[in-house]
């Protein structure tokens, strides 16, 4: 009786040991395979075309990261929030850069005005309705009439009807003492190298593009912030979520 019990125990012990060993081998092999897969993804050029199964897996993982880290500001579908100044990631308009995966990855890693030296920190929109519009640049404030003229100039650039005098005054301010051209460009089409929005298209980062909403942006200034995720997300997560963000703009 006792011999049979002892035999059963030893058999079970041995079976458990073998099972544990097998499990360990499977886990290590799985981990190695996963690391190899992640390594392959990271060593590829960020904008390289991925194999279909590799792309599917990366986008699925990226979507999970996006939901956990990015959806709070950009929304679950990435369509942004103009009340908060969080850009729509699902259109084809890129505020910073050209929409290359590598650029998206850099933005996610180091952020925007995130106080990280490698982040995008080049420009703030001055508050022209304040005594000292910019802490960095020497700029004079604008009067409400001046701001109205600049809005008229921009409306005319978008093809809307505006008073010719106001447009002329607005152009002079835009190209002169307002210093608007310095960031938004002489043609007001913006500059993705510093994150200055295009002012003559139909995409609005803040508000709805109505004159009162544009007035607020010019009078109060804008300096939206995006934190950097380097150190909080692994390198492969950064790549996966960058690929996912890029895919949002590629949807038909």
């Amino acid at each position: 009786m006792s011999g049979k019990v002892a035999g059963a125990i030893t058999k079970r012990t041995l079976a458990a040991a073998v099972a544990m060993l097998s499990l360990g081998v499977v886990l290590v092999a799985g981990m190695a395979q996963s690391q190899a897969r992640e390594g392959r993804l990271l060593r590829l050029d960020p904008d390289a075309r991925l194999a279909p199964d590799q792309r599917t897996a990366a986008l699925a993982a990226g979507r999970r990261v996006f939901r956990a880290q990015c959806a709070g500001c950009h929304g679950p579908d990435g369509r942004g929030d103009t009340g908060y100044g969080a850009p729509n990631l699902a259109d084809r308009d890129w505020l910073y850069g050209t929409g290359a995966v590598g650029e998206i990855e850099q933005t996610i890693a180091y952020g925007i005005r995130s106080h990280q030296p490698k982040g995008w920190n080049l420009a703030d929109m001055p508050a022209f309705g304040a005594p000292r519009p910019s802490a960095k640049e020497r700029l004079d404030p604008l009067s409400p009439g001046d701001i109205g003229d600049v809005i008229a100039f921009l409306s005319a650039r978008r093809g809307a009807t505006a008073s010719a005098e106001a447009v002329a005054r607005g152009r002079a301010i835009y190209q002169g003492r307002g210093g608007c051209y310095d960031c938004h460009g002489g043609d007001a089409a913006g500059d993705p190298a510093i994150g200055a929005p295009n002012l003559i298209d139909a995409v609005w980062l803040y508000g709805d593009g109505s004159p009162p909403s544009v007035f607020r942006s010019i009078a109060q200034g804008r300096r939206g912030v995006m934190p950097g995720f380097a150190g909080r997300l692994s390198a492969v997560q950064l790549r996966q979520v960058s690929l996912y963000v890029k895919s949002l703009s590629e949807a038909p």
Binding site: R43, D47, A100, G102, E103, E105, A230, A235
Partner: peptide, 15 residues
């Protein structure tokens, strides 16, 4: 690698 790509891009080169 991200910094390396960033440096390449800073030279106006598509990595």
């Amino acid at each position: 690698r991200i910094d390396f790509d960033g440096q390449l891009r800073a030279l106006a080169v598509d990595p």
